[in-house]
């Protein structure tokens, strides 16, 4: 069952019986990556500003076209060719703007296993990503079990303290060296 497709990068995610299949189409070849439910460690979702960027681009172009329509209308009247042309272009950008906003907030999603962290370009909208996660989560929980937010934080602190018993855990800081490397 396919449930997410990226139009630009031509990648898609497919739900298998015991794994998640990531398909990447490059020209005339397809590359497959399998993530077994028992091996998936985490999904990392980061909200991005891509939607705002596209809003600015399509909004600006739509506004320019709207001004051109207005200008042509004032100069040549309502039935001139320029008015019709710019109206069509305006509609095109207006539809793009509406679709961009209707699709919801944008995000970047990564999947992590013990040996890799892979970007999933097909999961680029937050709402869609959550819908996909809602489908995958029960399968991963069936294969591994579940952790609550408190359990995760507690286990992370335990790991840090077990590997660095002398040093208390410091708050996260950008670019700092990992506290646990043996």
């Amino acid at each position: 069952m396919r449930f997410a497709v990226a139009s630009v990068s031509r990648s898609s995610l497919w739900l298998g019986d015991d794994h998640l299949l990531f398909v990447e189409c490059a020209g005339y070849t397809e590359t497959y990556k399998r993530f077994y439910y028992r091996d998936i460690q985490a999904f990392i979702i980061r909200k991005t500003t891509t939607r705002a960027v596209w809003n600015w681009i399509t909004g600006s172009l739509a506004a320019v076209c709207a001004l051109a329509v207005f200008g042509s209308w004032r100069a040549d009247g309502l039935d001139s060719g320029m008015v019709i042309f710019f109206s069509i272009v305006f509609l095109f950008f207006a539809v793009l703007l509406a679709l961009n906003n209707l699709s919801g907030a944008t995000c970047a999603c990564q999947i992590r296993t013990a040996v890799q962290t892979e970007e999933l370009p097909s999961l680029c909208r937050l709402r869609q990503t959550r819908r996909v996660l809602d489908k995958i989560r029960p399968l991963i929980v069936a294969a591994q079990g579940q952790l609550t937010a408190e359990e995760v934080s507690a286990r992370m602190l335990e790991t840090i303290q077990a590997e660095n018993p002398a040093e208390p855990p410091e708050p996260a800081s950008p670019g700092s060296a990992p506290p646990v490397i043996s």
């Binding site: 990564q110 992590r112 952790l147 995760v152 934080s153 790991t159 996260a172 950008p174 700092s176 646990v180």
Partner: peptide, 22 residues
């Protein structure tokens, strides 16, 4: 691989607050 997770943007180590939240 360490069980700690980095922020994909600033690469800082995440310790809590963002895990398994709705």
């Amino acid at each position: 691989m360490s069980p700690l997770i980095q922020c994909p943007k600033c690469r800082a180590w995440l310790l809590g607050g963002v895990f398994n939240r709705p």
